[in-house]
Write a protein that binds this DNA or RNA. Sequence first.
DNA 1: TTTGTCTGCCC
DNA 2: ATTCTGC
DNA 3: GCAGAATGGGCAGACAAA
Length: 814
Amino acid sequence: MPKRTTDGGSGTPKRNRNGTAATPASSPGSKRTLDFFFTNRSLNNSPVDRKPYQEKAENGNEIADEELARKLQAQFDAEYHELNQNNTARQLVQDPEHTTIFDNTGVSNSEADTLKISESDISVAETVDCGVRPPSPSKEVALIPTAAIYGSIATIDFTVSPPKFDPIEHLTALKRLIPAPYLLLTHLFTQVDATRSRIKIINGLTNFIRLLMLLDKSAITSAVWLSTNSIGPPYTALELGIGGSILSKALKTVSGISAPALKSLYDKYGDIGDVAFEAKVSVRTLVDPPRLSIKGVYDTLLQIAVAKGSKSQELKQKLVEKLLIRGRGEEVRYLTRTFVQHLRIGAVRTTMLTALARAFTFTEYGPDCAQDKLQKAEEIVRQCYARHPNYNDIIAGLLVSGVEKLAESCPMTLHIPILPMLGSITKDMSEMLVKIGNEHTEFACEFKYDGQRAQIHYDESGKISIFSRHLDLMTDKYPDIVDVLQSHRVILDSTRSFILEGEIVAVNEVTGALGSFQSLSNRGRKDVQIASISVTVCLFAFDLMYLNGESLLDVPFRTRRELLRSSFAPVPHKFAFAESIDATPLDQDAISTFFRSSIESKCEGIMVKLLDSIAATTTASTRRTKSLLSTYTPDLRRESWLKVKKDYDSAADSLDLVPIGGWYGNGRKSNFWSPVLLAVRDPDTGVFQAVCKCMTGFTDAMYKETKAKYDEGTINVTRLKPADFETPLTPEYYWVPQEVWEIKFADVTLSPLYPAAQGIISDRGLSIRFPRFIRKRDDKGVDEASSPAFLAELYQRQQSRGAEDQDDLYEQFY
DNA sequence: TTTGTCTGCCC
DNA sequence: ATTCTGC
DNA sequence: GCAGAATGGGCAGACAAA
């Protein structure tokens, strides 16, 4: 049996795009953990006696080889029969052109078919097809030319500039592989993954789509979903439901490698896809399984997503295994990343839209078409996506009517959510005033409520849809909101259809006092019945994007707000307009007062929005390079509102915490400790109580410094939990307490997990919301770290907010 | 039935 | 959610 | 300034296991 070393062979990943090789398992026990992969705690029970990666993996491989190959072969055979009986027969009827893919010739006669495509072809497929075809008896000989074509895919360079990429050049050979092979997509991913250049990434996606348009149009949507870490638009609520647990079980089955050995691999690479790649490389099969197609992979994902009920986990795992078995080389890496919806190739949304726009423009006008034509196309596609965020419909529209008429073929539609306008962070009032414009700029300040954002659609028939910030449909979660709108005369008679936006906040039904975010999240989420609602809410409306059949997106905020206020009638404690004042930069006192009152009302701070569109000006007083927008156009400027929150301010409360442990990071941070476990210190007992993990706020320099200090093998780290540590979490290593880090946060929360300050406030401990590292406190020793009592005091101070009378008294006296 | 694990989605 | 980094 | 990546606390819901 050929000897494989762990780093040798074709399988050495050239991960990190920054050029640094994946950590070699040089130092004994170079390990990483990530909760979401090996969440199974039992794996952590005996970390100390785990052997170094090499030995374990070698052992695993030895077991894997021959025996496993036979096992897999038997499995293939069984599955071919199964598929023959079930899907393939159906496929033969529905899709006769494609049945020749894996036959003797490997030639498809579907050329004509792939050039004409109807809308239905690119919508979600109903048939299930893994891209698997029964092997024909004489395939040994016949597969050679096909295999050569697969081999030639590796020579295609997608990242060259579009004029240098001629899709037709590749067509003749690739046509024999229709439906488009998954390997083609994987090859694109590999190339995109290898560069950080935005230009090359966009080129890659663009040229790939250009090729698919000629090769196999029906694969475009599938490829786009697979490239964007999703399987459908968010508002259709398709969940894969695959996490580290199912994946590690599937990997174990497919590779024959034991769970501990897989964990070692994971520790080494810091990426599940890389683990799968490595694990699968060590598996040799006697006969290669048939190749995957793009559409086949996508359809299997859909099948995984719809699996529900008893034994569904098992079914999902089976389907995952099926794909993994059929995947080869790089395919396995990206299949696996797709399973956890974390492709990490540097192209998520905007990049894909740009690529779509360019691909269709190039195909229509040739690869040398004018720059402004491209730019215009990109604007159109981005705008259409912002108003109708569904790749199925965007691509269908592009195919049917081209880029220029996309707004008509893929229009803004009631009950399809639009992308939300977002706010950018401003540290304090003065930075906000600088960003907003000159002294004549008029703007609105609104309470930033601490609840859940909601986009509400209403049509002439009275149907209501409520969408979350990330465009998930949550109408079922808020039947009380629906009821208020429908039966309390909130919607004025003249208001026949609309899209409005607001914040849903927990409130005291009687007093109208605002509740916390934590209490809002105690509400049920699915199929909530009005009678059983325990957390009452109020909707604070703040914008109106559509009214009586007309879009208001290009209308200035001042007008939208007028229409909002004149189209709805408030109902106490149920429907209100967001608290608001209008101001100019000269009104600093009024703004400060308003900001303080927002905090006292348990809000997070304020949102600042331009009221009117400002004509482009070259006035020297404004330093802004890009003006803010008063229109509702997230496609033009995603973060055109300004967020001012108390905790952004440098004067905000912070904690001085002691780092007491760390986990290995992932991806970009795979060579660093991230996250880090932090603790308060009880000065009476000297005990360190865990408060939170922290992973943000560190510069790379800080990461390196930390890694050097708490390196494996130093006296600063230990596997065994020190007796004076109280933590429910098990980091990869515990750290010897010796530093104090300043950590900022938004709120103190009652924690179901962390033990800090347990017993002072309640039998639950305390934690913090949005922890981030600010700086090291070299001036402080661990005995000067924040105490549980201090943490509890912060919690209490925070709770006393909102009790207005009390606060006023406080201010009078101090 | 009850308890525990896993996942996705709110912020 | 927040934050950092490269383009 | 954009785009993307890496990951925070904490909840309900869906299953699996006991």
